[in-house]
Amino acid sequence: MSAADTPVGMPSPDAETRRSPWGEVLHSLLRSGTFLTGFGIVLFWVICALLGEHFVPYDALADDIINALAPPSAEHWFGTDQIGRDVFSRVIVGSRDILTVAPLATILATVAGTALGLLIGYFRGIVDDIVSRVLEAFMAIPVVIIALLAIVALGTSKITVIVVIGLSFAPIIARTVRSAVLAERELDYVAAAKLRHEGALHTMFVEILPNVVPPILVETTVRLGYAIFAVATLSFMGFGIQPPSPDWGLSISSNYGMIGGGFWWTVLFDALSIASLVIGVNLVADGVHGAFND
């Protein structure tokens, strides 16, 4: 026991003004303009994804060939696409698929990466050496290339995209967790757990894991931004979300061929939506990072 630990039941002098560590983090998040702006943007798109189809003026999938490629007007705020679908409705509803696939991929990456990072950080030695080299080799290959190969091999489906992105991000999270665990495993509480004859799994997941949550949370929010980047890019390449989804990347890929004809409204709003979502998530990540590192 170190002398710095406050004895149980003895309130520290400034007990009223002290908050729990998590309360502290929440407090600084709520005062961070970066976080709140990003959170607002992300919340907007989440609401669109969940409830969008109930308030958009048209069915996002309904075509109306007579009104095809109509420029923005009072009737169609963002115009219509090449088979007359309302671009505004499609942009709003188009948030749904990317906001399902990208977070699921991030969760997969976090769970797999955390488990792997705990293992190699805790055991070190030869396991760490071998696994770390393999992870480095994986990280050297651009995600787009891995994804392209894997998706050609496994076929295009949402599950494939989730698994591919999840697994290619897992090494990055594993590396972060590993370095956090390396610092933790030298601390007294780990030694105490070992003296109590706790099993390795117990020590890793019950003792160490709660103490490395902050870096994992920060890395997860950062990865979510990259996952959205990757899903949008794969959809644009035709290897991600498949038609007839009104997904943004997919819409851009089916409409950008006509861009030279001046039909800018068929791609501009989708592009701006991706941009706003990615920047929103990154602002959130920046805020979370700041809150834990103050």
């Binding site: 931004g225 980047f229 949008a232 890019t233 644009f236 990347g249 851009i252 950008y256 861009i259 791609v267 501009l268 592009a271 701006l272 991706i274 941009a275 990615v278 920047i279 990154n282």
Partner: peptide
């Protein structure tokens, strides 16, 4: 942080 095809399109 923006995907290349998004900045490309814009």
């Amino acid at each position: 942080v923006l995907p290349e095809f998004v900045t490309g399109i814009i």
